[in-house]
Write a protein that binds this DNA or RNA. Structure first.
Lengths: 168, 168
DNA sequence: CCAATACCATACGCCGGCGTATGTTATAGT
DNA sequence: ACTATAACATACGCCGGCGTATGGTATTGG
């Protein structure tokens, strides 16, 4: 329900009906609605045992090779509406914003390390990782019309070229 | 209320109280709540008579000079929570998504034109504009902790350098 | 001057969702 | 076999928000 309609539609009774139980049962597992909501960010964060991070660690080759691997991996993944839902929530809830920011930082750190591995100094690497990562965020957040995998792959190549043309 | 809490908190009675009128009065101006909501995207779009576009047109100099002008302008602007609210809304509402996408396209087109003016072919210019613009989106959407103007200005310079280093 | 219209208030019925109090069943430990 | 506890169901009271019906006031054109 969070994914499809946003936090404000995560409500006890509709949720119970969807699970084919009664709300009496809900209040056995959660103290109240707020208790459920506060448990969601952690639940989400745990589900983000980043396949990306795992994927980059199993990839051999240079830093740029790994970057290419990441980009292809992400391009093939179908866009994660869960991420978007959390981000939408985070806009109005500082606690959630902090949780999301933590994940963002972790992901950016991965990319930053790769740029450092490609020879950039920490500052430049950090900024280039921001540029890299924010592009992902922008693509996800603004995706009102779906884009084909081919299109995404092509853009990924373009991005890699642009962000690493001065390296090697 | 949209800005501060999101669409789902745009409700008739709280709204009426905030305006120190009764809801009877509300239903004179709007058919119902949905009528109000559907009027909001257009209202927002109209408020986006882009100061940025206006600003770039009054700036003299080369394409890159104009880019610099844009970046400085945006860096000094305080982050627009209205934009974020619309974006959060758009995630769950295709109609709103279309409205926001229209604004996004318009803004990107401005940047794209500048990159073309700097000598890039349409495709490269389009992609680089995406990279440029999505960075803005990412910075706004992920801003849980505020950043100083100086920091933003420095990042703007960094961005300009990175995205135009091969031009001139 | 008065009636039409714009604008707002009052008052009501309704429903969805919250939380609680209390029952019911199944399972496991002793 | 008995009880404790986990997991669910039933049933209620409450409130916030929606929409409607109706009444009031003020301004304005004829």
């Amino acid at each position: 329900m969070l994914r499809e309609c946003g936090v404000d539609h995560v409500k006890v009774e509709p949720l119970a009906e969807r699970l084919a139980v009664t709300k009496g049962s809900f209040y056995w597992h959660f103290k109240n609605r707020n208790d459920l909501l506060r448990s969601l960010p952690e639940f989400w964060a745990r589900s983000q045992t980043d396949p990306v991070v795992a994927h980059v660690e199993t990839t051999a080759g240079s830093a740029i090779d790994k970057m290419r691997a990441i980009l292809e991996f992400i391009a093939r993944e179908d866009p994660d509406r869960y991420d978007n839902a959390m981000r939408a929530w985070a806009i109005f809830d500082p606690e959630v914003a902090a949780a999301v920011a933590q994940i963002d930082d972790r992901r950016m750190a991965t990319v930053r390390a790769l740029f450092e591995g490609a020879g950039l100094n920490p500052d430049d690497a950090a900024f280039r990782a921001r540029l890299w990562y924010f592009y992902d965020v922008g693509e996800h957040v603004t995706r009102d019309t779906p884009v084909s995998v081919e299109e995404r792959l092509e853009r990924a190549q373009h991005r890699l070229k642009l962000l690493t043309s001065d390296l090697d």
